[in-house]
Design a binder for these strands. Structure first.
Lengths: 204, 204
DNA sequence: CCCCAGTTTAACAAAATTGTTAAACAAAAT
DNA sequence: ATTTTGTTTAACAATTTTGTTAAACTGGGG
């Protein structure tokens, strides 16, 4: 389980790139973070852009890959909602900077989304199709109140992801240290689930 | 109402800085966006950092200033929730890049939050105190279900703000053009309000 | 012991970006 | 009409960041 230098560099690059995006990342930061020097960095990788591409693809997959799998499962709506929330918050506890990183890079070059999406065989229509269908069925059966399935999905994602994007702000506003924040996010899996289920439940 | 060159430059700088943050902004981008040249930019402003500071303070105020006012109003909880949502989504429809910008800069230099917060006389404790008190009172009265007021506030912010942070991603996933997105956000004011109120309502 | 992949050092070249300057020019103000 | 102010151009200096190179060193494998 001892890491190769290549892996050490990649891990460092992930940290530095995800912290502030491509433009803010210095190759010297990556080297320092990896505990090596810049020359060695170029010994293993052509240049900054090459490292970035490798990382972006990996992070992109991490962020969307699992989501796609969960989204296409054959569960009930309730179970699917639970799995989406658990999956999102769970991976983000391990990789808190991920959503900000993706947001920064996709905002500055939106074509990345389509490019890497197709590269990984992810089809946006497929992603939401089953969820939409399932939600409409539950509405038709009268199990939940009438709500736009797309908005519901946006709501679930918002509740799961936003706290990580805004982590530093929330930490100050709510006066939490990093440990408290992480614990809070652990509890949040259940709380967000309840919040959503309550929100879509019918009231007498 | 004709703009001074200074204002034109500032407007351009807002666009460029909020698009990708300080590190990704080129002074030549700002000049091009303003329709002037780099020399003139330095004629009006000392340097890039000076322009950035002015803009960050302004954007920070825009983002948090109004929120603080709303948060301290004397409304009922329900009315306060409605106002928070309307205020957040309303200003973000006008300035969609704002939350990503704040998130990027605060993440790379968290001390900015405290620095500009105190500079503008905004106290985080004050911000949430009234909201927390009010929520607890409603819980005690049995009007809403038992929920952590901080989590509730995070939920409201998440639902209001996240869609703008993730705008490019949502647009692709949900297959919306920019106009559809904006219309969708207009409707969202009401939908988020209903979603939240349902979520905290008690069930039989 | 010697070789060699991996690594460091240090110097440097190349590129990108920022900031400065002087000169010329345009338009408005006096 | 001429000064002043705002603006452009173009060249360039300074700085920062990236990428390259050569030489030396290190430690383990053959």
């Amino acid at each position: 389980m001892t890491k190769t230098t290549e892996e050490i560099i990649m891990d460092a690059a992930i940290k530095v790139f995800t912290r502030g995006g491509y433009a803010a990342a210095r190759t010297s930061d990556i080297a320092r973070e990896a505990g090596i020097n810049r020359a060695l960095l170029h010994y293993y990788f052509r240049d900054k852009q090459t490292i970035f591409n490798l990382i972006f693809e990996g992070r992109f997959k991490e962020f969307f890959g699992g989501l796609f799998k969960v989204m296409q499962s054959e569960d009930s709506l309730e179970e699917k909602i639970r799995k989406i929330i658990n999956h999102e918050i769970g991976t983000l506890i391990l990789h808190p900077d991920l959503p900000r990183f993706i947001a920064i890079e996709v905002a500055s070059r939106p074509e990345l989304l389509v490019e890497y999406g197709t590269k990984l065989g992810l089809n946006p229509r497929m992603l939401i199709a089953r969820f939409e269908e399932l939600t409409r069925a539950e509405i038709a059966k009268g199990n939940i109140r009438d709500i736009d399935p797309k908005q519901l999905l946006i709501n679930i994602m918002s509740l799961s992801i936003y706290p990580f994007v805004a982590q530093p702000i929330i930490r100050v506003m709510m006066q939490m240290d990093p440990v408290m924040f992480q614990q809070s996010m652990e509890r949040r899996k259940q709380e967000v689930f309840e919040f959503v289920m309550n929100a879509i439940k019918k009231h007498a």
